[in-house]
């Protein structure tokens, strides 16, 4: 099996792990970590797609943009977490997001 196929399969499973983490996350920071893992999978898949179609530079260029966008998202998520813990004293998602109606 060529390594591109293995990476394709690997990216799917990393994505699945991230999704699983997102579903079981009870803490805002844990959710951010799970999202990070999902982004890693998407980035890997972009570069794999670039490599498979003979445009490795294109894949890398897309991945750089993804890293920048994703870092911004992480920073925002962390800022929210800091604010939340300052004003609520908890990061527990079930307490923060009480289901209403």
């Amino acid at each position: 099996m060529p390594s591109v196929h293995m990476l394709f399969i690997g990216a799917w499973f990393v994505l699945g792990t991230g999704l699983y983490g997102l579903m079981i996350a009870r803490n805002v920071l844990k959710a951010v970590i799970a999202l990070q893992i999902m982004v890693k999978a998407a980035m890997l898949m972009l570069v794999v797609a670039g490599a498979q179609t003979g445009q490795l530079a294109l894949g890398q260029s897309l991945a750089i943009t993804v890293i920048a966008a994703d870092t911004m998202a992480v920073v925002i998520g962390l800022a929210m977490a800091v604010r939340l813990s300052a004003s609520m004293g908890t990061l527990d998602l079930e307490e923060i997001i009480e289901p209403e109606g």
Binding site: S3, V4, L7, G10, M43, L44, V47, V48, G50, A51, L56, G59, Q60, A63, I64, I67
Partner: peptide, 14 residues
Amino acid sequence: LLYQLGAWEIAVIE
């Protein structure tokens, strides 16, 4: 993994 794939630049950034 990215380095293995030949994507050296993005591997460094990652």
